[in-house]
Every structure is written in structure tokens, then in C-alpha cells.
Write a protein that binds this DNA or RNA. Sequence first.
DNA 1: ATGGGAAATGTTTACGCAAACATGTGGGCG
DNA 2: CGCCCACATGTTTGCGTAAACATTTCCCAT
Lengths: 339, 339
Amino acid sequence: MPGGRRKQRVSMADVAKLAGVSSQTVSRVANGQSGVVESTRELVLAAMRELGYRPNSAARSLRYGRFNTLGVILFGLSTTGNSRTVEAIATQAAAEGYAITLIPVGVPTQDNVLGAFTRMGELAVDGVIVIIEVHLLDAATVALPPGVHVVVVDSDAGDRYPVVDTDQADGARQAVRHLLGLGHPTVWHIAGPAESFSAERRAQAWRTVLEEAGRPVPAIGRGDWSAESGYRAGLALPDECSAVFVANDQMALGVLRALHERGRRVPADVSVVGFDDIAEASSFLPPLTTVHQDFAEVGRRCVQALLAQIGAGPAAPGTDLVPTHLVVRGSTTGYRSVG
Amino acid sequence: MPGGRRKQRVSMADVAKLAGVSSQTVSRVANGQSGVVESTRELVLAAMRELGYRPNSAARSLRYGRFNTLGVILFGLSTTGNSRTVEAIATQAAAEGYAITLIPVGVPTQDNVLGAFTRMGELAVDGVIVIIEVHLLDAATVALPPGVHVVVVDSDAGDRYPVVDTDQADGARQAVRHLLGLGHPTVWHIAGPAESFSAERRAQAWRTVLEEAGRPVPAIGRGDWSAESGYRAGLALPDECSAVFVANDQMALGVLRALHERGRRVPADVSVVGFDDIAEASSFLPPLTTVHQDFAEVGRRCVQALLAQIGAGPAAPGTDLVPTHLVVRGSTTGYRSVG
DNA sequence: ATGGGAAATGTTTACGCAAACATGTGGGCG
DNA sequence: CGCCCACATGTTTGCGTAAACATTTCCCAT
């Protein structure tokens, strides 16, 4: 029964023996180097096919000192932003000849982050992209093995590492100004969790715009990014609220439901703006006005920044902001004083 | 300028020299083997810390012949199911001491799939999980390098590989039976793309239940899983439709919007059932009755099945189905004859 | 024909780690 | 007091690859 017991992997030496050449010649053929006569090349290729030869990447990595792999440390793929960013990273990395290794951190405790960083030090990666939006990163950065190339997404570590991020603040500004421009006296805000940098940055921008416009700053609402939490926050909005900027689209969905249940029409009575522009936003009832994030571009820039580091040595800290833009749909309209 | 040029990585030999022991002793300490006296261990650990030693996983892999890494081939993380399955896979793999490498296939053409499989052959992975729901897999399987351990998700490759999948058919049956049980004369269906196995299996089960119940089988609608396509399909539903089973929650969202625009109330005039139970489903207007999929369990079983193969040799083909269950919310209600 | 030289191919070596085997060291027991 | 054994530590070796260097081949110019 052939194949019952898996044979050893085929090495260059095996191919060389079958082809009757030296293993170095096999190596040359495998790497497409010149200096191998056509007939020999054919011979070697035939032997490779016959034996099903596949290069051993461990040996190759050992030889070259590089893995052609990037690590991505994150908490979860469940948030829209993360999965889309990771997808873009994977795609861009593949285009550059790199594979990506996922290093999930289960629960966002500091211990776990430290553990992931430690493990990562032993992983076969040439560089790391950290997608950890919470403040935990602060304390953990000290544990990052020295000499490891790092790019951080969505954080305020811009003083220590190269950071790529969506221009959260500008997106929030656009959202709030849009609502003020529609004549609303002020704008309520339902923010994400306090530990999140994005949430803080969006909330901060919201507050600043209101203050600069001399408008009252209403009490802030809080959610945990989930639609359910948005629903609860929506129920808590006061009756005089005519415009609300919600920190992400999922929570905005919950807000729409809460307002609906309270008999408040959107946008006639209340205008709602979200953030992210998830694919479903245009199918909400009503279609959601929201801030579009270019996750793909974030992923792309991450990879480029990291590869640049790997190629040219450590990069200067700093923040690279990807622009956002407001997409106006049906959930916002001009202010009409409430009876 | 120290650090301007990155120093060579620290090897066991460096640590050994500093600690004044042999590299083998360093190896023993690094792997926590017994047979090293405490004082020596301390010495070595101190040297490791001082030099910032980190084991080289390429050398380790070369030595052991294993990578402790699993590959995941997929088209994209943009679908809810994929990203949640991948997350579960990553988590479970991490718990078992394995990292996971993502191998994205950009556009689902056969060439690209073949390319990914070829590349994968050269990747540093001990096994592969294939998450490719479309029929393209058929032709591509021939390209899977022999001797590579494989588990497939969401496919009909059960005759060739071990397959783990959600029990699509049973979920669809529950959905349709629920609607019939509410008194609806028949049930419309908006299916996913024809190339998708899941879509086909859900549609097939829908048809079978109707036929077994002796009900008329209405013309099938089609979408591409997106909310937008669900919207279009919803606009196309005939007026006499009182119950519709939509192949995923995103499309169901679009259907809800379409029905709303047409002035048809849900669930009073039309009952709607989705599939997936995404987190947002409970915040739709109205909250969506849908079939819950346990993506986490799928991911877990994938990893377990794959590791079992790696440990014990090739596994028999076959399909491992993860149960689903219907979650009844506000989008379905008893049939009332229309006008 | 013959020497020179370029092109083709072969041989040696090191990458970092750890198993297998070899050596050293000290303590217990007859 | 001496022998032997258990345990600590050192040395050798090979995993698969490819750079660096060595050798062979063969064609061409003289």
C-alpha cells in the first residue's frame, strides 16, 4: 500500500541523484539562475516532477536569514475594520512575496498582550504589524523584542513607532460639520469604548468642533461598538436631540432601531451619521450617512512601511494618516424645530 | 551610532560563549529540559537576557521537520462567515501551539486557486485548511501537492478530503418549516450565487421541504450575498409573497429595505428569515429571525481534524457537520391572507 | 594542434538547532 | 579505600539550502 506511510520529504539531494547531477545544479534550476545548459535543466525539472520536489522553506529561511513572512498581532477579526484591514494586509503582502501569520490575542489583558509579543519574538516573521486599539499597548511596547520591525495601526504610539491610521479626527469633524451645516443647533455623540483610541479620537474631534462653533456640548453616550449597545444608547437619547453622530455603523444601526421604537422618524425628526461605511450601511432604514474609511489603503500602507523598514533599517516614528470622506445618504436632513 | 546598523541575530553559540558553557547546554535551558543544574541554568538565562537571545524558528523547523504552522487558503475575509471562522481557527491553533498563515486568493479564478495551491506547497506549513466555497475547488484539488494534510470547509469535497461544515441543509429546513408552520401557503427563496456550495445546499433544502409538503415552489431569487443584491431581489418579489427565506442576513437586510419601500410591512404582510445570525441581526428593523451558525465550532473542528491528521497520518474523507438552530425574532409571524 | 578562457558543473561550507553519543565529576556503598 | 553509577556537561553530526570556491569541459583563436 504505497503512501500508507508518508515518505520523507524530497530534498534537493534526492532530485540530484535521480537526475545524475549535483545538488547545487538542482538549486540553480530551482532558483532560475543562469549557467545551466538547457538539456541539464530539462533533466532536473523532469526529476523534480517525478519526485514531487518542493523546496523546504525552513532550510531556505535558515540560509537567507529571512522568512518572507509578516506577523499580524490583533485581538479579533470580529470588528469590520480589523478583518478588512487584515485582508488588505494579506493581499498586499502576497503581492510583495510575503505571507502573513496571524497572532491572535484572546482577551485584551496586558498579560496576554505581553505573551503574544513574547511568542512573536520566536515566530518566523521578519516584521510585525500590531493592530491593537486599546491603551494596553502602552505598557506592552516595552516587551517588544528589540530589533523587531514594527508598524502599528490605530494607536497613539506615534512617538515610538511608525503608525498608520485612518484620519479619525478629520472624519469625525466632517460628520459633525455636516450636521451643523444642516442647521442643527448641536450634535449628540455616541462614542465607542473609552479604552479605544479611535473612539477617543472621534469623540475628541466631535467635542472640538462643537466648542469651536460655540455650541453646547451634550452629555456623551457610550457603547461597545455593537449594535445592541447602540440600541441602548439610542434609547437613552433625550427627546430634544435632533442630530446624533454615532462612532460606528453597527451602533448606528442600533440607534436607528431605538429611534424607530420611540416613534422618532429618521431623518425627519433626528439625523444620524455613522462611521466606517460598512457595506450594509446603504441598506439600513434609512440608508446611513456615514464616514467612509479606506481600510484597504491602511493595510497597503502598513505593508509598505514595514517592508521599507525591513529593507532599509528602522524607520522614524510618526503617523501616516489615510484620509476619510463623508458619504451622505438618507439618514440626515435639515433641522426643523421640534413642535 | 549604535543600532544604526542592525547587528546579527544572537545565536545559541553567542549565549554559550558569554555564559561559558556549551551551546548544547543553552539548548537544554531554552527547551526547559532537565539535567541542568540550577546555577548553570541561571547563568545561561542571564546571558540570554543580556544578549536578547531569541530562538531561530527556521533552524528549529529544519531540525524537527515541522513548522508548527497551519495554512489557511481563502478568497477573502469580507464575508462574515469567513472572518469568524478564521478567527476561531487562529484561536484554536494558538491554543494548540500552532500559528496560522493566511494565503489569500485574490479573484476566484481557477488560475489563482491553482497558484495559491502551488505557492502553498512551498510555504512553511504542516497542513492546510481550505475555505473556498465555490466550485473552482473541484478542478484545483488535483494541484494539491501530495502528502499535504488538508481539511476543507464548506464544499462538497467530502469524497476526497475531510470536510467540516455547518449543517446548511438542516438550517434551511428549519427555516422553511418554521414559516410553513406559521401557516404560510409557501415560501419564496432568495439564494446566494450559484457557484456557492452553501447557497446551493440551502436552496436545495428549501426546495425539498416545499416539495415534501406538497407546496408550490416559487421562482427562486438570486443575490451575491450583499445587502444591495438582497435589496434588488426584494424589489423583484411578487405581491403575493407572504414569506421569504433569504440565504444570508446581509441580503435579508436588503430585502427588509425593499419591502419597506414597497410599503409591505414585516412581519405583518411578509415574514422574513435570514441565515447566519450575524451580531447585527437582532438590531434590524424588525429584529431578524434567522438560522444561527456556530462559526467558532467550525473553526475548532477544522483545527482538531487537521492536527489529528498531522499526528496520525492521512484521514479518511468525510463530512463533519456542525448543527445549526433557528433563532426566532420579530421578522416572522403567522399567515394572514392578503386583502 | 594547442593554449586560453568562458561556461557548465561539482565540492565544500555554514546557517542555528538539538538528538545522539562521549566525557567528566562527584557521591554512595561495599 | 576504591569502584561504579548517576548525573551534569561537552562534542559531533545532520537537517536542506545556496554562496563561495574548485574543477571540468569544450570551443575558438592562433
